[in-house]
Computed example of a mutant assay.
Amino acid sequence: MTAEVRREGVLWIQEHARGVVAIPLTKVGTARGSGTTIAFWPDVDIFGATEFSFDALEERFRELVFLNQGLEISLTDLRRPDESRSVRLRFPGGTRDFVGFLDGHTAASAPTDTIAFECEDPRMAGAMQVAFRWCSCPGERIRSFANSRPTIGGTHKMGFRDGMAVAVTAYAREQGLLTPMDPDFDADRIGAGLTAVVSVKLDRPEFEGATRGVLGNSEVRDCVGQAVQDHLGRWLKEDPERAAAVIDQIVQGAHRD
Score class of each variant (00 low, 15 high):
170 A>T: 01
121 D>Y: 12
61 F>I: 10
69 Q>G: 13
68 N>F: 01
32 R>P: 00
50 T>D: 04
85 R>Q: 14
99 V>R: 06
149 R>E: 12
125 A>N: 15
6 R>V: 03
25 L>M: 12
9 G>L: 04
17 A>F: 05
108 A>E: 13
121 D>L: 10
228 V>N: 11
11 L>I: 00
33 G>F: 09
79 R>W: 07
254 A>K: 12
186 D>E: 07
100 G>R: 11
188 D>L: 09
56 A>N: 10
234 R>D: 08
18 R>A: 11
159 G>D: 11
144 S>E: 01
82 D>G: 04
140 E>P: 00
10 V>S: 09
224 V>G: 05
208 E>Y: 04
22 A>F: 08
115 I>K: 02
233 G>D: 08
215 L>F: 07
192 A>L: 08
197 V>D: 03
95 T>G: 02
114 T>R: 10
154 G>I: 04
109 S>Q: 13
98 F>K: 05
105 H>G: 06
199 S>E: 12
251 V>F: 06
197 V>E: 05
40 F>K: 03
157 K>C: 05
71 L>I: 03
19 G>P: 07
250 I>H: 09
8 E>T: 01
231 H>F: 07
157 K>I: 04
82 D>P: 01
106 T>C: 02
73 I>K: 01
119 C>D: 14
100 G>Q: 03
161 R>P: 00
101 F>C: 04
151 T>E: 05
229 Q>W: 00
62 R>S: 13
18 R>P: 02
157 K>S: 08
135 C>T: 13
171 Y>H: 15
72 E>H: 05
24 P>W: 02
202 L>M: 11
121 D>F: 06
87 V>R: 15
174 E>L: 09
235 W>C: 06
176 G>N: 06
74 S>R: 13
185 F>Y: 12
162 D>L: 03
119 C>P: 00
71 L>C: 05
109 S>P: 02
230 D>N: 10
202 L>H: 09
212 R>E: 14
120 E>C: 10
211 T>P: 00
96 R>A: 15
217 N>W: 09
162 D>N: 12
24 P>F: 06
223 C>G: 11
6 R>K: 14
75 L>N: 10
193 G>P: 13
142 I>R: 10
236 L>N: 11
207 F>C: 04
154 G>V: 04
36 T>L: 15
135 C>L: 00
37 T>D: 04
35 G>C: 01
5 V>D: 09
83 E>H: 11
80 R>K: 14
29 G>D: 12
84 S>V: 12
192 A>P: 00
101 F>Y: 15
96 R>F: 12
232 L>Q: 04
169 T>S: 15
160 F>L: 10
195 T>Q: 10
7 R>P: 01
128 M>A: 15
102 L>Y: 06
169 T>F: 11
159 G>T: 10
66 F>I: 02
187 A>F: 00
205 P>E: 05
155 T>P: 00
186 D>N: 15
253 G>V: 03
25 L>A: 11
173 R>C: 08
157 K>D: 03
167 A>C: 11
75 L>W: 09
42 P>C: 11
248 D>W: 02
199 S>P: 01
64 L>E: 13
235 W>K: 06
118 E>S: 15
227 A>Q: 15
170 A>G: 00
30 T>V: 14
222 D>T: 14
224 V>W: 06
21 V>F: 02
12 W>N: 00
82 D>W: 07
159 G>A: 09
194 L>M: 13
77 D>M: 08
60 R>T: 14
182 D>W: 04
36 T>V: 15
246 V>W: 09
111 P>N: 08
150 P>L: 13
113 D>P: 12
103 D>K: 12
